[in-house]
């Protein structure tokens, strides 16, 4: 039991170190009208977090915005590391589209 705990602790320490080493990158969140918000985020920051922060910042319901990276929707759990993002990369933010027919 104690061993287990030590081990997990050890793992976490390693993980944490790796996270600390991974440092931060700058990303730009850009709307289709060209408005930009710059973020500095850790490479292990989940996109859900960034998205939440952005939504909050611009006063939108997080449900109505989409983050795209190179044209693909970003998963909530993805991180700059998992996406292999580079410093200065752009995330497109799009707003929900609805349609049924012109009125």
């Amino acid at each position: 039991m104690a061993d287990d705990q030590d081990q997990t602790q050890h793992e976490h320490e390693q993980e944490s170190k790796a996270e600390a080493d991974s440092s931060t990158i700058n990303v730009k969140v850009v709307t289709s009208t060209g408005d930009e918000v710059f973020f500095k985020i850790k490479k292990n920051t989940k996109m859900s977090k960034l998205k939440g922060a952005y939504a909050q910042r611009v006063g939108k319901d997080v449900q109505t915005i989409r983050f795209l990276y190179d044209g693909e929707r970003l998963g909530e759990d993805e991180t700059p590391s998992s996406l292999d993002m580079q410093d200065g990369d752009t995330i497109d933010v799009m707003v929900e589209q609805v349609g049924g027919g012109r009125l």
Partner: peptide, 21 residues
């Protein structure tokens, strides 16, 4: 999911819609 991130600040070109959201 969220516990490991802090938002420190940000800047944008458009005026933010303040509060209330």
């Amino acid at each position: 999911e969220d516990s490991d991130v802090e938002i420190v600040g940000e800047s944008r070109k458009t005026l933010p819609t303040r509060g209330g959201k």
